[in-house]
Design a protein around this nucleic acid. Sequence first.
DNA 1: TAAATTAAGTTTGTATTGCAAACTAAAATT
DNA 2: AATTTTAGTTTGCAATACAAACTTAATTTA
Lengths: 104, 104
Amino acid sequence: MENNILSKIIALDKTIHEPVRIAILTLLMVVEKADFIYLKSNLQITQGNLSSHLCKLETAGYVEIEKTFKGKRPLTLIKVTEEGEKNFKDYLLTIKSFIKQSGI
Amino acid sequence: MENNILSKIIALDKTIHEPVRIAILTLLMVVEKADFIYLKSNLQITQGNLSSHLCKLETAGYVEIEKTFKGKRPLTLIKVTEEGEKNFKDYLLTIKSFIKQSGI
DNA sequence: TAAATTAAGTTTGTATTGCAAACTAAAATT
DNA sequence: AATTTTAGTTTGCAATACAAACTTAATTTA
């Protein structure tokens, strides 16, 4: 038992453990779907940066990306998958128990 | 106010926000000094990996590295600096308030 | 109606990483 | 004398995060 929390920290899911992706997943947990522009304006990052992070999350199977149109303009909708949700919650629980043990 | 926590997450200190370095700093917070071997065996990572993370922390001014001898063998002692301690605590507080808001 | 601007993304380029494997140097053991 | 162990550092490389450049199409302006 004992300092097992440090091995859990070291084994943290790298797909999630990236600030921008933590923020993306946090937003996606509270809405059923979000569009690209909504995420971009909430996160205040460049479109290219958002695009590549979404690709990473999609490749990992953590989000689903649906390309549609609003009128004649492209509209990209993003939602978290069950797997993404589960792994994100696990991630949060590990962080939480780490914080608890840190005594902060 | 409101979703300001996400901008804090995105602005998280990259020198700290790396699992191995979080673990190193966590260990360094509870001892005055640690030696290389102590860190290596507690973290269960390769020496090369530990060496490079310590360099990164040293370059950032977050740890001080003192090379001495135990008998005739090299002994490397590592301690966290005041700046390292302050920034690590700030990091933990940000994570803590994020976890709190996440409702987990 | 031609030119410029805006919208909504994707692709490209690059400098930085994290890590394992290889290496160094000296001490201890066989 | 040769091998192994200890205590690290350096090297090599694949993966990454981000900004800048690009694409495509719609809209606005002159």
